[in-house]
Design a protein around this nucleic acid. Sequence first.
DNA 1: TTTGAAATTGCAATCGATTGCGTAAAATAT
DNA 2: ATATTTTACGCAATCGATTGCAATTTCAAA
Lengths: 343, 343
Amino acid sequence: MKKVKRTTIYDIAEKLGITASSVSRALNNSSQVNEKTKELIIKTADELNYKRNLLASNLRKGQSKTIGVVIPRINQNFFSNVIAGIEEVTYQKGFNLIICQSGEDHDKEIQCVNTLINQHVDCIVISVSADSYDYQHLQNVLDHGIQLIQFDRVAEELETLKVINDNLQASYEAVSHLIEGGYKRIALLEGPQNLSIFKQRKEGYLKAFKAYNVPVIEELIVENAWTKELGAEGTRKLLSLPHPPDAIFASTSDFSALGVLDVANAMGIKVPSELGICGYANESFSEITSPSITTIDQFSVYMGNTVANLFFQEIGNNDTTTKPKIISIKPELIIRGSTKRNR
Amino acid sequence: MKKVKRTTIYDIAEKLGITASSVSRALNNSSQVNEKTKELIIKTADELNYKRNLLASNLRKGQSKTIGVVIPRINQNFFSNVIAGIEEVTYQKGFNLIICQSGEDHDKEIQCVNTLINQHVDCIVISVSADSYDYQHLQNVLDHGIQLIQFDRVAEELETLKVINDNLQASYEAVSHLIEGGYKRIALLEGPQNLSIFKQRKEGYLKAFKAYNVPVIEELIVENAWTKELGAEGTRKLLSLPHPPDAIFASTSDFSALGVLDVANAMGIKVPSELGICGYANESFSEITSPSITTIDQFSVYMGNTVANLFFQEIGNNDTTTKPKIISIKPELIIRGSTKRNR
DNA sequence: TTTGAAATTGCAATCGATTGCGTAAAATAT
DNA sequence: ATATTTTACGCAATCGATTGCAATTTCAAA
């Protein structure tokens, strides 16, 4: 296992009595090497089971053909789908992906970013963690001449490429759907407001109220309810109010919505007739629950594709005067059983 | 964005009027450099926003502190959990993860492996794709002196480190549970038999029959039913037999079990009273369905931890005479509504 | 003050691939 | 046959960090 001497271009050169230069050129399919010798070189390279040392190659070329991805956690449907989407594209271009998990921790996020800078990645793709409070480390990425693309959870104040969902619009549509369904007291389970995505979702919620000329009821807005447990907890509080809500928009995630559903079931409250529920993210389980949960699809794999394509588009483009692009993907409201009441 | 000259140890050396050697040593906390100059070097490195170029460092040191992971697809619960588990451990050791998806395609798997060899990864962790028919590419990994660890889906004939589930035992327990529950005609949805995991699960199924002295009914064994759709299809066939089964063990996955459940619901067949269902893998949705699905938990995150720990244990260990280790993790049967009938 | 050992630092090669520049050889034009 | 252009290949530097060995300095012991 140890100390296997791998064959290098020098080994090939020596065997053929030529220089490493020619070998290198041949393997890069340069036109300045004779066709015959090129064939010969490729043949012997194959015989010797030669594999190019990308460390050396990349060092010399000052690039790495590697993209670093920093996400809160990989074993969360949305993120693993985005990664799958990124990989689809990058793989075809011969780029590799280094994955780091920030675990929703600001310090670990900084460490991840630094590691990726050390690795000389060509680009860092990030969805910031929930407790990120400043973005010096991201500025640092730019200072090192590394392309930076933010997706989904973005630091708005940083001028970088961004791929986001139109959270406001999606949220607006979801709440409109509830209002049109005849729900009168619609509660909101909101996420950490330092993340713009959650702020936007709240704005969409408020916008719908305004559009339909319905007054907002402050006591129906529950902060920081973005896990299944917190969602359940918030729901218990909401449902024990003197004037409980007749619908809950779990704007943070389907997990949260699942918490709502559990509590409703446990309390014998009928969904959707007595309580409408709408989640967010179209997790795979949301169509399996009973009733199935109305939610919002974010086209996560497509989002990954978009991120990757954006990168390849931008590196081809040396024009530094272009404004930082923001691509917004319109999510889709998926109406299911949890909000379909027959009046 | 382009052409940012990053600071190197030479820049630091020049600024302080010393050599790069000392800078390098200082940054590696070598004892052969004066404490005072060490401090000074570290301070200026920080001021200049120096980041070590790992390409250069790794090239020189002949390692990369990187582990390559090849899996069928990342956006599948089991695999993303394993990766999360691997990352937990490797991150602490300062190792990075390069992720490749084979997409269940043998050729792409080969390409992935080759890329990782090019990248000079220190270890390749792989769960082979379903249509892998030979393992030359894995042998090649070993030939390049790269540590190879297989997990879950393994090529048994290759002598490498392996981390697997005790599929046979788990499967045996699941079927025993069904038999003890009074189910008489238990069908099996099996996966591609070239993958040992599916072969073992079938063996467990057969073993249970033998143990309880129940005859195996060949027509109740359905080949290649390892997606939701194929599971549903197989179920339709099974349930339209003259003598339909009264339980189905979807040994391939919970997705397949979900297909079974859908068909049963559609046909108005009651679960678990008229039909028992058991899945595999404890996907998050399996406890949400109604009834919830009895399944087998594979401790996927722990499996990832184990893989990573195994690697670090082995590289510390230069003794090449050690036999290739196989670590078997005992999965756990999780009994839920889909097999709980009250007789 | 001298001597020897220990502590610091510098020199230069090395990891493997790439590439600008120069030159010899081959091909084409005159 | 000679001049000129192409083509093909070699030389040597380079990317940035590491490290064995040599050289110098420091310091304590004699």
